[in-house]
Design a protein around this nucleic acid. Structure first.
Length: 430
RNA sequence: GCGGGUGUAGCUCAGUUGGUUAGAGCGUCUGAUUGUGGUUCAGAAGGUCGUGGGUUCGAUCCCCACCACUCGCCCCA
């Protein structure tokens, strides 16, 4: 019997959950601070929801199965189709713009490598119904607030920002053969991953003319917004959107994160405007988060057309980055107080004390059997409890116990009825 | 999908040029201390040597396949 989880799947032991909850809490708090509303969707979807959008190629990567009534189902590989489904089904009853978020487990059957498993949790932020670039700005500033909450900064993380629309304009201005636009996108996406000679070979294979290849490389040389402006002019909406977005990010205090990169393309399938991808500066990891504008997706699924902006932020890469940067939190216990007793005759008093404290909002670990003090204190240390309330036969006779502060070592005998008040006061002081 | 590396106690790793009872540190448990933890000391438990097959008198060690992890490609985001 193999007791390991299937390939690419993870288990979370209690000590792992401390870290996972810490990450999820930061995501949730940042989303709520920016007034995003949480939603949730079923993990299992009708398979066709993904096939329609993703096309034939990705079908093999979907965990798909038939139920006992021969329904074709799938574990979701990503959230955007499910979000679109909800938005469409809500119809006009949904006040726009809608700012929604969630943390979702997604599945993909693919080769596992560092930073990429067959299952991961993903924080999704989406704004539906806002065509202005202010939507991109809101999503990004919310996301970057989490980056800073993790303890990261623009010294470690950069966001490459590009625009598919701008790329198209650039190539149009250079009279690039638009029939090869998709080929150009594919090649641009490989910039930096393979040598320029290989890029050229790839383009030749696609029957791109020598002239067009030169044009494409001219676009690749664009390193700044000014360079782009020289080609598309100052009236380009695509370029002005990027400029405006950067202005908004500057006003939000996040300017230093952004790097203009004409070669950022991302999902060719449904991104229509600005796209972005965050990477660690040292280049050790895969993309930390990524997203962009997808104005055509809803209508492609049969819904009313709505402008949308969204991003996905996975838990696997950020975990590895935080580990590398030594920013993961030290395991911190949530237990405030351990209540234990030395004689069976004191059990009911201990139970009563625990119930009172729990009603008053104190996290209590109650001993499940009578134990020797040595064992009690050892256990209290292990679970990280801040206080121990120890009831012996002498104290029990007076409805009291011995309250010990494990940090200072101070202890005093107090009444069970005074326990919760006493502990609360001490916790507030810390 | 292709190629390299790794797999020995719960964890990090030694080791065996193929030979009886496979080791250490950390962790766990017990005791010193039968009403007081973190330190110290003593002791104990814990191993199909990743799985299966082959070669051999004998395999944890050599060979093959598979599984898992990992690095680099391919593909993809």
């Amino acid at each position: 019997m193999n007791l390991e989880p299937p390939r690419g799947m993870r288990d979370f032991f209690p000590e792992d959950m401390i870290i996972r909850n810490w990450i999820f809490d930061i995501w949730r708090k940042c989303a709520e601070r920016s007034a995003f509303q949480q939603y949730d969707v079923c993990v299992v979807e009708n398979r066709e929801l993904f096939i329609r959008k993703a096309g034939e190629e990705v079908v093999d990567q979907i965990y798909a199965f038939e139920d006992k009534s021969n329904r074709e189902l799938a574990l979701r590989p990503e959230m955007t189709p499910s979000l679109a489904r909800l938005i469409i089904s809500k119809g006009r009853a949904l006040p726009l713009p809608a700012k929604w978020f969630g943390i979702f487990q997604c599945f993909r059957y693919e080769r596992t490598v560092r930073g990429r498993k067959r299952e991961h949790y993903q924080w999704n932020l989406d704004i539906v119904g806002e065509k202005e670039v202010s939507a991109e700005a809101e999503v990004l500033r919310t996301c970057l607030s989490s980056i800073e909450a993790f303890g990261l900064s623009s010294d470690i993380v950069k966001v490459r920002i590009g625009s598919r629309q701008l790329l198209q304009e650039l190539l149009e201005k250079l009279s690039f053969n638009q029939n090869h636009f998709m080929d150009a996108c594919m090649v641009l996406d490989k910039k930096g991953k393979v040598s320029d000679d290989v890029l050229k070979d790839l383009l030749v294979e696609k029957d791109v003319s020598t002239e067009d290849i030169d044009k494409l490389f001219k676009v690749l040389e664009i390193n700044s917004i000014e360079d782009a402006e020289k080609i598309v002019g100052d009236s380009s909406t695509a370029l002005n959107d990027i400029i405006r977005l950067l202005t908004l990010m500057d006003a939000s205090g996040f300017k230093d994160y952004f790097v203009f990169d004409v070669a950022v393309i991302r999902g060719l399938a449904y991104y229509t405007g600005i796209v972005f991808e965050a990477f660690d500066v040292k280049g050790r990891h895969r993309a930390i988060f990524g997203g962009g504008r997808y104005d055509k997706l809803l209508e492609s699924l049969g819904g009313e057309s709505q402008p949308c902006v969204g991003l996905g932020f996975g838990d696997v890469v950020i975990y590895e980055l935080l580990k590398d940067e030594n920013l993961l939190p030290v395991e911190k216990s949530s237990v405030d107080l351990m209540i234990a007793y030395m004689d069976e005759s004191s059990e009911l008093l201990a139970v009563k004390a625990a119930s009172l404290c729990r009603k008053n909002g104190i996290n209590v670990s109650l001993g499940l059997q009578s134990q020797k003090p040595k064992k009690i204190f050892t256990n209290a240390n292990k679970i990280g409890s801040k206080f121990v309330f120890l009831i012996g036969s002498k104290e029990a006779e007076l409805n009291s116990g011995n309250l010990k502060d494990l940090n200072s070592g101070d202890q005093e005998v107090i009444l069970v009825t005074d326990l919760s008040q006493k502990v609360k006061e001490s916790l507030e002081k810390q």
